[in-house]
Design a protein around this nucleic acid. Structure first.
Ligand SMILES: [Mn+2]
Ligand SMILES: [Mn+2]
Ligand SMILES: [Mn+2]
Ligand SMILES: [Mn+2]
Lengths: 218, 218
DNA sequence: ATATTTTTTTAGATTTGTCTAAATTTATTT
DNA sequence: AAATAAATTTAGACAAATCTAAAAAAATAT
């Protein structure tokens, strides 16, 4: 199946947003795509009709398995072309995004698989993001436990492994959520508790048993 | 100025048709683009409004200087991408046209100039057609049809004027490609077919209609 | 529990590119 | 010079993707 560039951009944007937040909202997507909420609603209906999206009105939405599959192929193309532009055409990593935004819509799968081979099957794009393989498999991002990161290093919360009510309640109270950026300021040897700092907030303390369930990317 | 893929396809097709016939007709263009004459007329009006086309209704039309400039940049992109696909990604010369048809609409001029450099500033695409330089200048070609060369004279294939899949497939089977060196050994008056000899290969026969589309330099 | 604000959806319009069917103009035959 | 045929254009429609303004639903505050 071939989809328009516009549809592909929607699918990719939803893919990225749901990576972070699970379910996506109309306003968030409109903001991501620099368009109007009304336009987003229009497109959501079309994507649902094509079974690329799970969507009930007013309830938020996320990609179907098929939608995710399409999105991953676009992510693959985007990142391989970025790699090509930096590695072979010597562009700076900050220049390549807009060009890749166009190149990702070139349809031939054979072309992109040959390009992958030509580039030596790179694992990551110039921004460090992992490149899905030909079948669409995406290597998991490197999630590290809060216990294992160095002091005074900015980290972003990416995953919570214990998702019990009690854990989430505690994290909510401490203002820790997926996407929160923080640094570990101190580790106390007595009980392995940690003192954390979130920008513009006062320091907070969490126990070892909490910290070992909070994963971050550095 | 940026133009839609559709407009760019029209400009390029008009460019190619007027190379051959000077002035272009509605039906010829509709045929070239596999669309309807009414659709062509619609687009002609838009191209005229944008001063890309010289057009008076019922009188035929041709590109303005600005239109020619745009068309040459698309031809440049098309041929450079074809060269890339054959030379770097090892596609056959008969496979690359459709991919180049998409790639030629990637807009960045900087990208295409870097690609040109990466490829070593090639003079001709895989089908022997000349590649316009960065400023849009196109080298003229001085090719002679196989029909018109003397017997037993070494000639090098430089261009194929009919680039249909069917023609390229036939030539591939006969081991004839751009750069192939051959001699015409016999001409048969009955059907104007030719017997050719490529060094180290047994003699091959081609029809008049094939021969008239194969151009060589002596 | 109401009132207010925010989010989301609908209604209706617009632009681009395409189409079919019909009308018009130009070219070719008788 | 008509008549006929061919080429071209116009009229009116449609699908895709977008927009603005208004309505409806959900979330938040009082
Ligand atoms: Mn894109
Ligand atoms: Mn990237
Ligand atoms: Mn094209
Ligand atoms: Mn070519």
């Amino acid at each position: 199946m071939k989809y328009s560039s516009s549809k592909e951009n929607y699918l990719k944007a939803i893919f990225h947003l749901q990576e972070e937040d699970g379910v996506v909202t109309t306003n968030a997507l409109a903001n991501e795509l620099q368009t109007r909420p009304a336009s987003v609603t229009d497109m959501l209906k079309k994507l649902k009709t094509q079974k690329l999206l799970l969507y009930e009105k007013y309830q938020g939405f996320k990609l179907s398995n098929e939608g995710k599959k399409v999105a991953l192929q676009i992510v693959r193309k985007h990142r391989l072309w970025e790699f090509f532009l930096v590695e072979k055409l010597h562009f700076g990593w900050e220049e390549v995004h807009d060009m890749a935004e166009e190149l990702e819509h070139i349809s031939s799968k054979k072309l992109i698989d040959r390009l992958d081979e030509f580039l030596g099957f790179p694992k990551n794009d110039p921004h460090g993001d992992p490149i899905p393989d030909s079948s669409g498999k995406l290597a998991m991002k490197q999630h590290i436990s809060l216990l294992d990161i160095p002091l005074n290093t900015l980290a972003e919360v990416s995953n919570i492994s214990d998702q019990s009510i009690e854990m989430l309640e505690l994290l909510k109270h401490k203002s820790i959520a997926i996407g929160t950026k923080l640094e570990v300021k101190r580790k106390f040897a007595f009980d392995n508790s940690l003192e954390l700092k979130i920008k513009n907030q006062s320091a907070i303390t969490i126990s070892e048993s909490v910290a070992k369930n909070v994963f971050v990317i550095i």
